[in-house]
Write a protein that binds this DNA or RNA. Structure first.
Lengths: 127, 127
DNA sequence: AATCTGTTCTAATGACATTATAACAAAATA
DNA sequence: TATTTTGTTATAATGTCATTAGAACAGATT
């Protein structure tokens, strides 16, 4: 597991976990049907509490990114080839909007913002 | 003030304020050197506590988006024509990255993500 | 049969968000 | 100049959230 937790970050540990696991799936490091480590073992590896990892897993399940099989484990879901649904699109828009507003206030123009977004996409897709 | 607070949102009130004020500046509804309402009057308008508005203002000042003049008021800063500095770029990248990872996991491709970002930029810049 | 797994429960701690008062001093206004 | 407005500061209370801890349970795996 290539996960790094920063305990002093203002970002909650379980959110850091959600983000980094999503990134591992997005990069293809973790593929659909792959098993995630058990909450106990990952918690032990990272030096955090079992409940914190469990919370992250359930957040990922709520997002339909993994599936938790009770008393067994968790596996990565299939990335839908049909693309995102409306709810997911709306959610992404809602989250991205304030960041774009902030970027504009910082003096970025359309090309600069697009360039940053594209570089991140490339970094995740190929990197 | 065209601000709408959702008290039951999981997003803190002061963060909602920061986001909506940034959007008002990004859209040009509020321009550099414009005065912001006093923390007391805005708090009264929105039905929230003075300290909550004050917290939002100080967060905007920390981001160099407004300037607080002690015992006087707050004004919108100039949008730098030189563009963002390195710290601001790194911050935006860091915040956007997990959202792009999530978008990819939802099945979006590069064009779909770019399309969403461009539509938001257009909405803010023109809409 | 023994182990591993997620689940559930209780409990404690610290941090954060919000509200409520209140008082103060400087700025703006009448 | 006197009054009002403003941000500042302080204290306190409340509720929520994040995290940890310990334990017990029952189904799944080995």
């Amino acid at each position: 597991m290539f996960i790094q937790i920063e305990p002093t970050s203002e970002i909650p540990i379980y959110t850091q976990l959600v983000n980094q696991l999503m990134e591992l799936i997005a990069t293809g490091t973790m593929k659909p049907s792959d098993s995630l480590p058990s909450v106990r073992s990952l918690a032990s590896d990272l030096g955090v509490n079992m409940h914190t990892v469990n919370k992250a897993y359930h957040e990922l399940e709520r997002k339909n990114i993994i599936q938790i099989i009770p008393k067994s484990g968790a596996v990565v879901n299939i990335i839908p080839s049909t693309g995102p649904n409306e709810l997911q699109i709306e959610y992404i828009k809602q989250m991205v909007k304030p960041l774009i507003a902030e970027s504009i206030v910082y003096g970025m123009d359309k090309d600069q913002i697009s360039s940053i977004v594209n570089s991140i996409i490339t970094e995740i897709s190929e990197g």
